[in-house]
Amino acid sequence: MKDVLIEVNLTKSQKVKPDSEGLAFGRYFTDHMFVMNYSSDKGWYDPKIVPYQPISLDPAAMVFHYGQTVFEGLKAYLSKSGEVLLFRPEKNMERLNLSNQRLCIPQIDGDIVISGLKKLIEIDKDWIPTAQGTSLYVRPFIIPTESFLGVAPSKHYQFIIILSPVGSYYKEGINPVKIYVEDQYVRAVAGGTGKAKTGGNYAASLKAQEEASSKGFSQVLWLDGVEKKYIEEVGSMNIFFKINGEIITPALNESILEGITRNSVIELLKHWGLTVTEKKISIEDLFEWYSEGLLEEVFGTGTAAVISPVGELNWKGKEMLINNGNTGEIAKRLYDTITGIQNGTQPDQFGWTMTIKDNEN
């Protein structure tokens, strides 16, 4: 890890921290944030930690007009011994740079960002919740700040990290969620920005999500944008199916986000000796497997929810009740193992966790 000089300006007015019990997701924010700027003549410069505050931008700042923005999501956990643990942050930096590449945003130095993140979490360590199922959510993001009305990459950017103490992403927690299979709207297509973590992908999903929510579903399962036939991902998760003992997940393509939890789940399942296949899966095949009694489990994987069992899929009004609406054995084992590694209660055989030691920066 590189030695980085990070200016620190501490707040003079600390916020009231929320109760760890019953925490909502993404509603509360800590006392400080990490900020770093970019200009075409200086590169990334002036990394610093400042009090959490509004961002002042010119109305012509390009972020408001052209959607050239990327973000990431990861979590920090407090172990029983008082150590702060990050889960695979280097993978988030790699993916952020892949998103940057697609959106014509300058590459960031992952070592500098992780160094700043560790210092930020060290300062706001008291914000990490300790109730079961809670964590400190980390949101890095980049916005173009140049004042210019023209469709072109910006010459100025701001990189920011904010922190949020969170509970479960879904109100159901580890209990199964209901998913609506979307066959009208399109979120992303090959050649587009689907594999990048950029705001436009999520904006494109809102209409379908709103309609699914009105019907009582927690999320939308997207099909491919061309034939509307092949399963891709859920709005906030990658998706896995257990078919007659085999674990199957859609193969990555240019319209599916390469999830870090997805990658971890595949490694873990193979470590357990289970068969994992990445391939194209049609919704028709899935319904046929269900009709034949071969669809044994469905679960989603993502940073926010970690593992989310799916109890029901609905496609064209046809209901698929998965495992009688109960949490499956594989999903429960994955959840317990990954969250155990994340919070330090289970051994980390894979070297996935990074420890933040007090005053290491």
Rank of each mutant, 00 (worst) to 15 (best):
L86P: 01
S205D: 01
N37V: 00
Y52Q: 09
E90C: 05
G67W: 11
A304R: 04
K228N: 13
E233G: 06
A304M: 05
P309K: 00
N9K: 15
P176G: 06
V189Y: 07
Y77W: 03
G199P: 12
Q132E: 15
V298G: 00
A188R: 02
K91P: 03
Y45T: 00
G173D: 07
L286W: 04
P18F: 01
L10V: 13
P129S: 10
S205V: 02
V166S: 06
I128H: 04
F64A: 05
L85Y: 06
K279V: 04
A24S: 12
V16Q: 09
L23G: 04
V181C: 08
S81L: 09
T69M: 10
A196R: 12
T337F: 02
L206N: 05
E267H: 13
N175G: 06
G293V: 02
A208H: 01
G273K: 11
G194A: 06
G273Q: 09
S99M: 11
E278N: 08
I114E: 01
V35H: 08
D183N: 14
A76I: 05
N37S: 14
I174F: 04
S79M: 03
P347L: 13
F287H: 07
S164R: 03
D224K: 11
I231N: 05
K119T: 08
L23V: 02
Y137D: 13
S20W: 11
P51A: 07
S264V: 07
T11V: 02
I162P: 03
M62G: 03
L206K: 10
S236H: 05
S40G: 06
G225E: 08
K15N: 10
A331N: 00
H271T: 12
S147I: 00
P250Y: 06
E312D: 06
L269Q: 09
R102S: 10
V84D: 00
E284C: 07
V226G: 06
T337Y: 05
S164Y: 08
I330G: 01
Q14W: 08
N92E: 12
T11N: 01
W44P: 08
V265N: 00
S154A: 15
P140Y: 03
Q219I: 06
K332L: 02
S213R: 15
G173P: 07
T355L: 04
N238E: 03
S218Y: 07
T355I: 15
E94D: 09
T277R: 14
I6F: 08
K118N: 07
S56C: 05
P347Q: 10
L334M: 11
K2R: 15
Y335W: 10
S214L: 13
P54R: 02
V151Q: 08
A212L: 07
V113L: 07
Q342E: 08
T355V: 15
D46K: 09
V234W: 00
T130K: 12
E267V: 12
